[in-house]
Simulated scan of single mutants.
Amino acid sequence: MKLSADLRAFEDRIGHRFANPELLLEAVTHSSLSSPTRPDNQRLEFLGDRVLGLVLAEALLDADPGANEGQLAPRFNALVRKESCAAAARDVGLGEVLKLGRSEMMSGGRRKEALLGDAMEAVIAAVYVDAGFDAARAMILRIWGGRVGEVAADARDAKTALQEWAQARGQLPPTYTEVERQGPDHAPQFTVEVRLGSGETEQATAGAKRQAEQAAARTLLARLEKRDD
């Protein structure tokens, strides 16, 4: 099988030439364009998530030999979460080579955080299946290497940080409620409200509920911390 010029250029950007090019084609094929003869990237995504986790866990241990599990866990979570995978995908221009169905393409699928993050994990798995763990590790560290050294010592996500803020003050964990959903099924917009037991609330809107929850938590936490100062 011969890859198109754009996929050959993508191989150059990730630093890996595929012995089996069909793996790369599968990794960049979204479910909106799959068919019985053209598999999508969901199975590879599942595997790539595990390969990425192992590589970055090793990298964090090597980068900070004195860190304990409680210090390493939030850094690890920051590096492997979907937003970080999407940022890595943008760094290598993955969105430019994604194979999408028409509706997904028209709704801006090449820029969607969840879609990019999933595809990045699928590419990792494709490299792993094609050439083994060492090749996958080398690619991941090329793309994530700077992030490993720069990840904040306190790299908790906003929902975790808000929950810890509440618990430190004797409150129950925050609750998250979807208050509105707009847009078509292929490009929904979710509005989520976060509420503390003490009554403080905040809302945010995003293309995925998880992103809306994180945004609402981030905004509320910033307001609370500013008030405490």
Rank of each mutant, 00 (worst) to 15 (best):
D6K: 11
E96V: 11
K99A: 15
G66D: 11
Q214C: 01
I143F: 03
K82T: 12
A119Y: 00
R17Q: 13
M120H: 05
H30E: 05
R195H: 08
Y176A: 10
D229P: 08
Y176I: 11
V127K: 08
L54E: 07
A215T: 07
A87C: 09
R195Y: 03
A87T: 12
R210S: 11
E121D: 08
K159L: 07
A212L: 09
A187P: 07
S107W: 07
P39I: 06
Q211C: 00
G15L: 14
E11W: 10
V192E: 01
E200L: 08
T29E: 04
A78D: 01
N68V: 03
T201E: 06
T175L: 14
R43V: 09
K226G: 08
E69A: 10
M139Y: 09
A122D: 13
T219N: 12
F190W: 15
K82E: 05
V80K: 04
E113S: 08
Q42T: 14
R195E: 14
N20Q: 14
A122M: 12
A27R: 00
L220G: 02
R17P: 08
V55A: 04
P184A: 02
S35L: 12
E104P: 03
E96I: 07
R223F: 02
D62I: 06
V192N: 00
R90W: 00
R90V: 03
D157W: 04
I143C: 06
V80M: 06
P74L: 08
R156C: 10
T201C: 09
G197H: 08
V129L: 15
D118P: 01
V28K: 00
K209A: 05
A19D: 15
L162D: 02
Q211D: 08
A216Y: 07
C85R: 15
Q189I: 06
A215I: 02
R223H: 11
K112S: 09
H186W: 01
L220C: 10
F18G: 03
L25K: 14
R195C: 08
V151M: 04
